[in-house]
């Protein structure tokens, strides 16, 4: 009896899972969970911790390209490159309500380079973190915002 129930539960479970993967809900990449803890971090320290980067050292191997002054905080172009082989890249905005803006996973064969556009509620330090060989290093730049991007 017990065996039967277990078997039934297992069958149900695998059926659901099979359905999800066949519907394309789970791909290899998306099976990795969105890092909720990191994206909910309200301070640099909280996000560093959630990313497993206790206190990243500043390094000239990381280059953060962004404007000194952003006229529109809703669209701030940010570009990160590294001379090291990057496994992971993250963009943090110290004074945003959610500090972590985005993170990127860089497989072998993809360059340590990404450009995107972020929102900034106010002038703030922006951190570009690069993980290489299991260790995080970073570059920091202050961006002044003349018109905020997060308010209504």
């Amino acid at each position: 009896m017990v065996m039967n129930e277990q078997r039934r539960a297992l069958l149900k479970y695998s059926a659901v899972f099979g359905l999800m993967s066949s519907a394309g809900l789970i791909s290899t990449a998306q099976a990795e969970e969105w890092n909720k803890a990191a994206f909910e971090g309200k301070s640099l320290d909280e996000v560093f911790k959630a990313l497993g980067a206790s206190s990243p050292d500043k390094s000239s191997t990381v280059v953060l390209n962004a404007p000194d002054i952003a006229e529109n905080g809703a669209v701030v172009p940010v570009s990160i490159t590294s001379s090291l082989k990057a496994d992971q890249i993250a963009i943090l905005v110290e004074k945003n309500p959610a500090v972590l803006a985005a993170q990127f996973f860089i497989p072998n064969g993809t360059e340590a380079f990404v450009t995107t556009r972020i929102k900034m509620g106010q002038s703030s330090n922006v951190y570009a973190l690069v993980k290489t060989d299991g260790k995080w290093v970073m570059a920091v730049k202050e961006i002044k915002v003349t018109l905020g991007g997060c308010g209504g």
């Binding site: 290899t28 990449a29 990795e32 969105w34 890092n35 994206f39 809703a74 669209v75 701030v76 905005v93 945003n96 959610a98 972590l100 803006a101 985005a102 993170q103 990127f104 996973f105 860089i106 497989p107 064969g109 993809t110 995107t116 556009r117 972020i118 929102k119 900034m120 991007g149």
Partner: peptide
């Protein structure tokens, strides 16, 4: 896979 990204609400429209 050549690229994976995770976005928070701080990525522009």
């Amino acid at each position: 896979d050549v690229f994976n990204a995770e976005f928070g609400p701080g990525v522009s429209k």
